[in-house]
């Protein structure tokens, strides 16, 4: 299966073309955020404050990288479990977020919101943080520096390997994959 190179922020045409199960190579700008940063973003939206980065059209990568050694861009930087962000995600999608990169399945609410707001959920390989870091060319902390590994970073990525897990048509990679290889009734 040949990976499809795509650029982010995603344009409408690309969003329509992406379907669950398609491997991609992502290039462009992503913002990192995990539990603690999400909590602050949601609070900022509630207070109608300006967010520390432009959410509209953008991509959030759920990762808390390890520290960079001197002279390096970043440490290891693989995805963390997306499900922990499910409670915050529909609100961010309604505010214009267009894509997320993480690992693991999403809740029914998030999957419905992806269809409603026409956004994509990608997975990257959990536990491949050293390999994935090779695709990160630049990293700058843009907000919540006090959160350490959980600070919001702007990352420039080149050919970052990921797979479309949920598309705008309601397809789910995890359901499809499991149905194909399942022998157990459960």
């Amino acid at each position: 299966m040949e990976a499809v190179p795509i650029n982010i922020p995603l344009d409408r045409k690309t969003i329509k073309e992406l379907t669950a199960g398609t491997p991609v190579l992502i290039s462009g700008t992503v913002y990192t955020a995990r539990d603690a940063a999400h909590k602050r973003l949601i609070e900022a939206l509630k207070r109608r404050e300006t967010l520390p980065f432009p959410l509209k059209g953008q991509t959030i990568y759920y990762t808390g990288p390890s520290p960079a050694r001197p002279g390096r861009v970043i440490g290891s930087a693989g995805p963390t479990t997306s499900g922990r962000m499910d409670i915050y995600t529909p609100r961010l999608l309604s505010a214009g977020l267009k894509a997320m990169i993480g690992k693991g399945q999403r809740s029914a609410e998030v999957r419905a919101a992806l269809q409603k707001y026409k956004a994509i959920y990608f997975i990257a390989i959990g536990g491949a943080g050293a390999l994935l870091a090779q695709a990160i060319k630049k990293a700058t902390v843009v907000a919540y520096d006090d959160l350490g590994p959980e600070a919001v970073r702007e990352l420039t990525v080149e050919n970052f390997p990921a797979i479309v897990a949920n598309d705008i048509y309601g397809n789910d990679l995890f359901e499809q994959g499991r149905a194909q290889y399942r022998k157990e009734k459960g």
Binding site: G21, K103, G104, Q105, I123, I125, G126, I163, L173, F174, Q176, G177, R178, A179, Q180, Y181, R182, K183, E184, G186
Partner: peptide
């Protein structure tokens, strides 16, 4: 039995 669940590497099926 576990490998018959179909979950596979990272849950993509397998």
């Amino acid at each position: 039995r576990i490998n018959g669940l179909g979950i596979g590497p990272m849950g993509v099926g397998g």
